[in-house]
Computed example of a mutant assay.
Amino acid sequence: MTDRQSVVNKVQQYLTEDFSNIQLGNDGVLSLRHQSARLFVRVNEPRKDGSITINLTAPVLYGVTDGPALHEYVAFQRGVS
C-alpha cells in the first residue's frame, strides 16, 4: 500500500517537470497559477481499500449569486453550449 506522502511527492515531481511555479501549502495542498487562474491539487488520505484519490479544484467565480441568470451567462455568453 502506498502512503499519502509518497503520492504527494510523486505528484509534485510530475508538476514541477512542466511548471516552475508549484507551491506546497501548509495543509499539503499543491497549487499552481497560470495567468489569473489557480489550480489546487489535493492528495487525499488512503481509503479503506488502500486506494488514494486526487482532487483537482480550479475556482472560477467569486462573490456571485447563483441563479438562472448566472447559469445562462456561463452556458451561452462564454461560447460554451
Rank of each mutant, 00 (worst) to 15 (best):
A58H: 09
F19N: 02
V80K: 14
F40H: 06
L32C: 06
D49L: 03
Q35A: 04
S81G: 12
L24V: 09
D49G: 04
A37D: 14
V41G: 04
P59N: 04
I52L: 05
L15V: 00
R38N: 01
H34M: 06
Q13M: 06
N44D: 05
N26F: 02
R4E: 13
D18M: 12
P46M: 01
G28N: 07
R4V: 08
L39H: 06
L32N: 07
S51R: 12
L39P: 09
L56P: 04
E45H: 12
I52M: 05
D66S: 13
H71M: 09
R47M: 04
A58G: 10
F19D: 00
Y14M: 08
D66Q: 12
H71N: 13
T65W: 05
I52T: 07
H71V: 07
N55G: 14
V7E: 12
P46H: 01
E45N: 14
L30V: 01
S81N: 10
K48C: 00
R33W: 00
G25E: 03
R4I: 06
E72N: 13
K48Y: 04
S36R: 08
D66L: 13
P59M: 04
V64M: 11
R33G: 08
N21T: 05
L30F: 03
D66C: 11
T16K: 02
D49S: 06
V7F: 09
V74L: 12
P46G: 01
H34N: 04
S36C: 07
L56V: 03
I54G: 11
V41M: 02
L30A: 00
V74S: 03
T2I: 14
V7G: 11
I52D: 09
T2F: 15
A75Y: 14
S31C: 06
R33Y: 02
L30R: 00
P68A: 15
A75T: 15
I22R: 02
R38E: 11
T2Y: 15
E45I: 10
N21E: 06
R78N: 12
P68W: 12
I22W: 02
L70H: 01
Q13Y: 07
S36M: 10
S36F: 11
D18Y: 11
S31H: 05
V29E: 03
E17D: 04
N21C: 07
L24N: 06
T16I: 00
V7D: 10
R42D: 14
T65E: 10
V41W: 02
F40G: 03
A37S: 13
G63F: 03
P68S: 12
V74N: 04
Q13H: 08
E45F: 10
S36N: 11
L61F: 10
V11C: 06
Q5W: 13
P68R: 09
R47Q: 08
D49K: 03
Q12M: 14
L32G: 08
V74H: 05
A37H: 13
I52W: 09
L15Y: 01
L15S: 01
E72I: 05
Q35M: 03
T2S: 15
R78G: 08
D66G: 13
R42L: 15
T65G: 10
I52E: 09
V80H: 15
V29R: 01
G79Y: 12
V7L: 13
R78L: 12
Y14T: 04
G63W: 00
V80Y: 15
N44W: 01
H34R: 00
D3A: 12
I22V: 12
N44K: 04
S51I: 10
